[in-house]
Write a protein that binds this DNA or RNA. Structure first.
Lengths: 344, 344
DNA sequence: TTCTGGCACTCTATTCACTAGAGTGACAAA
DNA sequence: TTTGTCACTCTAGTGAATAGAGTGCCAGAA
């Protein structure tokens, strides 16, 4: 639909209505707007305007004698054309900075902390997804003998990520063979992305030497080594914030959402998909979400870079969320993450 | 209090009452017991018995004309003397077995999956804590050069656990120095527990050679390396199960609990504490819990062994929980974990 | 002495009617 | 075009009435 022909007044009223509703969570009446905002027009005029907005599908009434609440389309219009950039306050910046200050401790720890700080500052759900390892370039692969029959495979990536996979091997494999295998793997695989490795592992290691039993463990492209390594890590925090929201007073709704959050892989691909084309902040409102369970929620998400790969972070909450603030939060956090993880 | 003098009948009635209440979540009346269980006594007799049980503090009435519900003391007595061992059904065994089948993928992945399967099978919260690393014996320490200025420290423990810590070092440190340092660290530290290392790191590395700048990073006993490595990993799953429970219909209660769950370190030490003296299954009922926020919950927990160290797993839910089933679940899961992780 | 049936009593949860209040839509006047 | 006004609608809350569950106790049976 085209909403370009909205009058100044209609825009103002919609904007006030949404701001007010975001704070109060109650349907907003014409009187409330007339009193709280000095628009210089009477409640009757606002009433008429609201009627127009309703006809355009930007607001709706829960019942005849109630105030109005924004529809998904209303939020969409608000976000697209009425939202003005908001500077993040210093306290919030500081909180994020101190969380994402250095890579010490590893990438996963930072992401875990970041999801927590996002939840804290937004009062919503904070979500972070680890960088996509498929695009990540392997810088070293190391085999460490742990105990009889157990070998630790360490994959170190340029982006600073690391994954360890425990391998159960034939007890007979010794020190020297491991070192030899390690040398071989590095020679053949270092410098490639994990995706490339998975796609061509058979060809690349085909004619090589080394212990054949050990080799076989690495050869299967569906092997645990390559699969587990590529698995995305998801961090979700702030469940307690969401419980408080009046839109989740209904336990069934809350349950639906929680169920969705526990379906990790689905959630990961959902968020990733939003950023397949292009980067920047993406706001997905209510019914725009692909997954039924979160169609009463909005998602504010962004990608960050870690070397030559990217990850996703975001905030999830009811459609009635303070978009301006959340956008600046997510944007700032993504930028800081990129800075630290890309060592820029 | 001493409850040994309970008559056979009183025990039976209490047992029936609790079983019934666990299933229904509603106060249980004398008629309900008389009808559902063939005890061969009338509801009036049961009424009298229940009055006695109430005087002893084992059951209570929410209000004058309601049925009875068990008190914490009631559950305690039930669990201590009336609970009979229950065999876990084959389907549940299978579900656990297939989760905890091999160490492939690493210990943390298993623990994550285990918390999930515990939640699933119990319809409560499933909790797992990684093995205590302080007691774990370091089998190898490896330094891997990632990119300029970044070194990955890999700690491999006998128990099959591994931790990686990213170190930011002076860019000038090279290949050879790393290898030398690596050799040094293994020589001095391998075979010691992480706790020992932390306690005596200064003495052990004092007069050693190697690059002094690099060395300094390892010397501080409060260094990120030793601290992060020792940090316990906590996995909590099944929030959605808890939401459904009628005892959490009150949002504030639910919120309190969620808050507690997000205070990870507190939760970890709470659970660990229960198992400080002795192992086996420990059931902690309602007010027996140290943390106020979970005093309307019970915890069924057990320790598992991983090499020469131990970790904790458990189930958390409202005091009205099917203790018999949960005990067998936790017991079985702990045993299987120990089997796989101790390679026994 | 112990158990049981019966009965009066208590308390809760539900229903229904009623009311106050918020908000609208529409109209006539400014 | 805007505004004040008023009749109308719908909800949320209140209070009374009621049904139902469950108890405590007593008198009689076993």
């Amino acid at each position: 639909m085209a909403y370009e022909n909205l009058s100044e007044r209609e825009k103002k009223v919609l904007s006030c209505l949404i701001s007010y509703y975001i704070a109060s969570a109650d349907p907003v009446g014409s009187r409330a707007i007339a009193n709280k905002f000095r628009l210089g027009i009477s409640s009757a005029t606002i009433r008429n305007t609201m009627q127009d907005l309703e006809e355009m599908g930007l607001v709706q009434q829960p019942h005849t004698s109630a105030g109005r609440i924004p529809t998904d389309a209303g939020y969409r219009f608000f976000v697209d054309t009425l939202l003005r950039q908001e500077q993040l306050n210093e306290a919030d910046k500081l909180a994020i900075d101190s969380t994402i200050s250095s890579m010490a401790g590893g990438v996963e720890a930072i992401l875990d902390q970041t999801s927590r700080v996002l939840a804290e500052l937004s009062n919503q759900l904070g979500v972070t997804i680890s960088p996509r390892l498929d695009d990540s370039i392997l810088s070293r692969i190391e085999l460490i003998h742990m105990t009889e029959g157990k070998v630790l495979v360490v994959l170190a990536f340029r982006s600073g990520l690391a994954r360890t996979i425990l391998l159960e091997v034939d007890a007979a494999i010794g020190w020297v063979e491991l070192a030899e295998m390690s040398r071989l793997l590095n020679e053949k695989l270092a410098g490639l992305s994990l995706g490339q490795i998975r796609a061509s592992i058979i060809e690349r290691l085909h004619v090589s030497g080394g212990n054949p039993r050990l080799l076989r463990l690495f050869l299967d492209r569906e092997s645990d080594i390559w699969n587990n390594a590529a698995a995305d890590q998801l961090h979700v925090e702030g469940t307690r914030n969401i419980i408080e929201q009046p839109e989740f007073a209904d336990r069934r709704k809350l349950r639906e959402l929680m169920k969705m959050l526990e379906r990790r892989t689905d959630l990961v691909s959902l968020l990733r998909n939003y950023h397949e084309s292009g980067s920047g902040i993406i706001i997905t409102i209510g019914g725009e979400n692909r997954a039924r369970e979160i169609q009463s929620c909005s998602v504010v998400s962004a990608t960050y870079t870690a070397g030559n790969t990217t990850g996703t972070i975001g905030i999830i909450g009811p459609t009635r969320m303070p978009y301006a603030k959340l956008v600046s939060l997510v944007k700032y956090a993504a930028r800081q993450l990129s800075k630290v993880l890309s060592g820029e």
